[in-house]
C-alpha cells in the first residue's frame, strides 16, 4: 500500500522544497474532520449485509458517454 517513496532508482520529479504552512491557508472555508476517531462500523456492516449479493450480476447498462 505504500506508494513510491522507496524506489531509489527512480528519476524523481522534484517535490516542493518545503510544505506550505497549513495554518496560513483558507482553512476556515473548508470542512471539519468528523469527530469520530474510530467510527462504529456495525451500522454500515448491517447495511452491507442487506445488499442482494446478485445485484451486480443483474445490473446491465448500455454504453453511455
Amino acid at each position: 500500500m505504500k506508494p513510491t517513496s522507496s524506489s531509489q532508482e527512480r528519476d524523481r520529479i522534484p517535490r516542493p522544497p518545503a510544505p506550505r504552512d497549513a495554518e496560513q491557508t483558507g482553512r476556515e472555508e473548508g470542512p471539519r474532520r468528523p469527530r469520530l476517531e474510530r467510527p462504529d462500523t456495525d451500522d454500515i456492516l448491517q447495511r452491507m449485509r442487506r445488499v442482494d449479493p446478485d445485484q451486480a450480476r443483474r445490473y446491465r447498462q448500455r454504453t453511455g458517454q
Binding site: 505504500k2 513510491t4 528519476d11 524523481r12 520529479i13 522534484p14 517535490r15 516542493p16
Partner: peptide
Amino acid sequence: REWPVPLEGGGHSCALDVQQCLLHAVS
C-alpha cells in the same frame, strides 16, 4: 500502489510525485 509512470527519455516517476510537482508549480 506504487503507481509508476514511465517518462519520455527513459526515466520513471510515479503518480504521487507528478502530482507533488504540479502542486508545487500551482502553489
